[in-house]
Protein backbone atom coordinates (compact mmCIF):
# COMPACT_ATOMS: atom_id res chain seq x y z
CA UNK A 1 0.00 0.00 0.00
CA UNK A 2 1.32 3.39 -0.95
CA UNK A 3 2.05 5.73 1.92
CA UNK A 4 0.08 8.97 1.84
CA UNK A 5 2.18 12.09 1.65
CA UNK A 6 0.24 13.82 4.41
CA UNK A 7 0.65 12.96 8.09
CA UNK A 8 -1.70 11.03 10.38
CA UNK A 9 -3.70 13.12 12.82
CA UNK A 10 -4.36 12.40 16.49
CA UNK A 11 -7.83 13.94 16.75
CA UNK A 12 -10.03 15.55 14.12
CA UNK A 13 -11.71 14.80 10.78
CA UNK A 14 -10.42 13.26 7.58
CA UNK A 15 -12.54 13.98 4.52
CA UNK A 16 -11.62 11.36 1.95
CA UNK A 17 -12.76 10.61 -1.60
CA UNK A 18 -13.40 14.24 -2.45
CA UNK A 19 -13.94 14.60 -6.21
CA UNK A 20 -10.51 15.46 -7.58
CA UNK A 21 -10.00 19.21 -7.77
CA UNK A 22 -12.70 20.07 -5.22
CA UNK A 23 -10.58 20.19 -2.06
CA UNK A 24 -10.31 23.96 -2.23
CA UNK A 25 -14.11 24.27 -2.33
CA UNK A 26 -14.34 21.99 0.73
CA UNK A 27 -11.92 24.29 2.55
CA UNK A 28 -14.14 27.22 1.66
CA UNK A 29 -17.19 25.42 3.09
CA UNK A 30 -15.28 24.81 6.31
CA UNK A 31 -14.34 28.52 6.41
CA UNK A 32 -10.66 27.64 6.21
CA UNK A 33 -8.38 29.55 6.51
CA UNK A 34 -10.60 32.18 8.27
CA UNK A 35 -11.41 29.89 11.21
CA UNK A 36 -7.98 28.40 11.53
CA UNK A 37 -6.98 27.20 14.98
CA UNK A 38 -5.20 23.97 14.12
CA UNK A 39 -3.30 22.21 11.36
CA UNK A 40 -5.07 21.48 8.08
CA UNK A 41 -3.49 19.16 5.49
CA UNK A 42 -4.66 19.03 1.91
CA UNK A 43 -3.80 16.48 -0.74
CA UNK A 44 -4.94 17.14 -4.28
CA UNK A 45 -5.18 14.57 -7.07
CA UNK A 46 -4.08 11.58 -4.98
CA UNK A 47 -4.20 8.16 -6.68
CA UNK A 48 -6.98 6.05 -5.18
CA UNK A 49 -8.71 2.72 -5.95
CA UNK A 50 -11.56 4.48 -7.72
CA UNK A 51 -9.46 7.07 -9.57
CA UNK A 52 -7.88 10.29 -8.43
CA UNK A 53 -9.26 12.09 -5.42
CA UNK A 54 -8.57 14.89 -2.96
CA UNK A 55 -8.19 14.50 0.81
CA UNK A 56 -8.57 17.11 3.55
CA UNK A 57 -7.44 16.49 7.14
CA UNK A 58 -8.50 18.92 9.84
CA UNK A 59 -6.98 18.47 13.26
CA UNK A 60 -8.95 18.94 16.48
CA UNK A 61 -12.28 19.55 14.76
CA UNK A 62 -15.25 17.22 14.25
CA UNK A 63 -17.62 18.33 11.50
CA UNK A 64 -21.25 19.08 12.29
CA UNK A 65 -24.24 17.98 10.18
CA UNK A 66 -24.67 21.23 8.27
CA UNK A 67 -21.02 21.16 7.22
CA UNK A 68 -21.38 17.55 6.06
CA UNK A 69 -24.52 18.48 4.05
CA UNK A 70 -22.60 21.25 2.35
CA UNK A 71 -19.74 18.91 1.45
CA UNK A 72 -22.24 16.45 -0.06
CA UNK A 73 -23.32 19.21 -2.45
CA UNK A 74 -19.90 19.45 -4.11
CA UNK A 75 -18.28 16.10 -3.29
CA UNK A 76 -21.08 13.51 -3.23
CA UNK A 77 -18.71 10.54 -2.92
CA UNK A 78 -16.75 11.93 0.03
CA UNK A 79 -16.36 9.96 3.26
CA UNK A 80 -16.06 11.56 6.67
CA UNK A 81 -13.72 9.88 9.15
CA UNK A 82 -13.76 11.13 12.72
CA UNK A 83 -10.39 10.41 14.30
CA UNK A 84 -9.91 10.09 18.05
CA UNK A 85 -6.51 9.19 19.44
CA UNK A 86 -5.21 8.13 15.98
CA UNK A 87 -8.11 5.65 15.54
CA UNK A 88 -11.07 5.98 13.18
CA UNK A 89 -13.86 6.37 15.72
CA UNK A 90 -16.64 7.00 13.16
CA UNK A 91 -16.77 6.62 9.40
CA UNK A 92 -19.63 7.50 7.11
CA UNK A 93 -20.30 8.66 3.58
CA UNK A 94 -21.74 12.08 3.08
CA UNK A 95 -25.37 11.96 2.04
CA UNK A 96 -27.57 14.76 0.85
CA UNK A 97 -30.88 15.02 2.71
CA UNK A 98 -34.04 15.30 0.56
CA UNK A 99 -34.23 19.00 1.36
CA UNK A 100 -31.52 21.51 2.22
CA UNK A 101 -32.39 24.61 4.17
CA UNK A 102 -30.27 27.72 4.71
CA UNK A 103 -27.16 26.29 3.02
CA UNK A 104 -27.38 27.48 -0.59
CA UNK A 105 -28.74 30.82 -1.80
CA UNK A 106 -30.92 30.93 -4.91
CA UNK A 107 -29.08 32.13 -8.02
CA UNK A 108 -32.26 33.70 -9.39
CA UNK A 109 -32.05 37.43 -8.51
CA UNK A 110 -35.84 37.79 -8.67
CA UNK A 111 -36.55 34.81 -6.40
CA UNK A 112 -38.55 35.85 -3.33
CA UNK A 113 -36.03 34.05 -1.08
CA UNK A 114 -33.44 36.69 -2.00
CA UNK A 115 -35.61 39.51 -0.63
CA UNK A 116 -36.20 40.74 2.88
CA UNK A 117 -38.61 37.99 3.93
CA UNK A 118 -38.51 35.95 7.15
CA UNK A 119 -37.58 32.69 5.41
CA UNK A 120 -34.41 30.68 4.85
CA UNK A 121 -33.40 29.53 1.40
CA UNK A 122 -34.85 26.09 0.71
CA UNK A 123 -34.02 23.58 -2.01
CA UNK A 124 -35.38 20.18 -2.97
CA UNK A 125 -32.71 17.64 -3.84
CA UNK A 126 -33.71 16.06 -7.15
CA UNK A 127 -30.49 14.11 -7.71
CA UNK A 128 -27.83 13.17 -5.17
CA UNK A 129 -24.91 12.27 -7.46
CA UNK A 130 -24.23 14.45 -9.31
CA UNK A 131 -26.02 16.84 -6.97
CA UNK A 132 -28.99 18.61 -8.55
CA UNK A 133 -31.24 20.89 -6.56
CA UNK A 134 -34.24 23.11 -7.31
CA UNK A 135 -35.38 26.12 -5.34
CA UNK A 136 -38.53 25.39 -3.32
CA UNK A 137 -39.79 28.90 -4.06
CA UNK A 138 -38.98 29.65 -7.70
CA UNK A 139 -38.25 26.08 -8.92
CA UNK A 140 -34.99 27.17 -10.61
CA UNK A 141 -31.77 25.16 -10.51
CA UNK A 142 -28.60 27.04 -9.54
CA UNK A 143 -26.07 26.86 -12.39
CA UNK A 144 -23.06 26.30 -10.13
CA UNK A 145 -24.00 25.03 -6.67
CA UNK A 146 -20.54 25.58 -5.18
CA UNK A 147 -20.75 29.31 -6.00
CA UNK A 148 -24.06 29.59 -4.12
CA UNK A 149 -23.09 27.94 -0.82
CA UNK A 150 -23.74 30.37 2.02
Amino acid sequence: MKELKIPLIKNGTVIDHITSGNAIKVLRILSIPQNLSSTVSVAINVKGHLGNKDIVKVENRELDTSEVDKIALIAPKATINIIRNYEVAEKHRVELPSEIIGIVSCSNPTCVSNYNEPVKSRFKVINKDPPQITCYYCEREPEDISERII
Partner: peptide
Amino acid sequence: ESLADTIRMADSYSDAIVIRHPQEGAARL
Protein backbone atom coordinates in the same frame (compact mmCIF):
# COMPACT_ATOMS: atom_id res chain seq x y z
CA GLU B 1 -43.55 45.84 5.03
CA SER B 2 -42.57 42.31 4.09
CA LEU B 3 -44.77 40.18 1.88
CA ALA B 4 -45.03 37.66 4.73
CA ASP B 5 -46.62 40.29 7.01
CA THR B 6 -49.00 41.50 4.28
CA ILE B 7 -50.10 37.90 3.81
CA ARG B 8 -50.63 37.42 7.55
CA MET B 9 -53.06 40.37 7.45
CA ALA B 10 -54.99 39.14 4.40
CA ASP B 11 -55.12 35.72 6.01
CA SER B 12 -56.91 37.12 9.03
CA TYR B 13 -59.34 39.22 6.98
CA SER B 14 -60.48 36.69 4.38
CA ASP B 15 -61.18 33.06 3.46
CA ALA B 16 -58.87 32.78 0.45
CA ILE B 17 -56.05 34.84 -1.09
CA VAL B 18 -55.30 35.50 -4.75
CA ILE B 19 -51.85 36.96 -5.31
CA ARG B 20 -49.90 38.34 -8.26
CA HIS B 21 -46.38 39.42 -7.42
CA PRO B 22 -43.23 40.34 -9.39
CA GLN B 23 -40.96 38.03 -7.38
CA GLU B 24 -40.75 34.39 -8.38
CA GLY B 25 -41.87 32.04 -5.64
CA ALA B 26 -43.96 34.76 -3.95
CA ALA B 27 -47.13 32.65 -4.00
CA ARG B 28 -45.29 29.67 -2.49
CA LEU B 29 -44.04 31.95 0.26
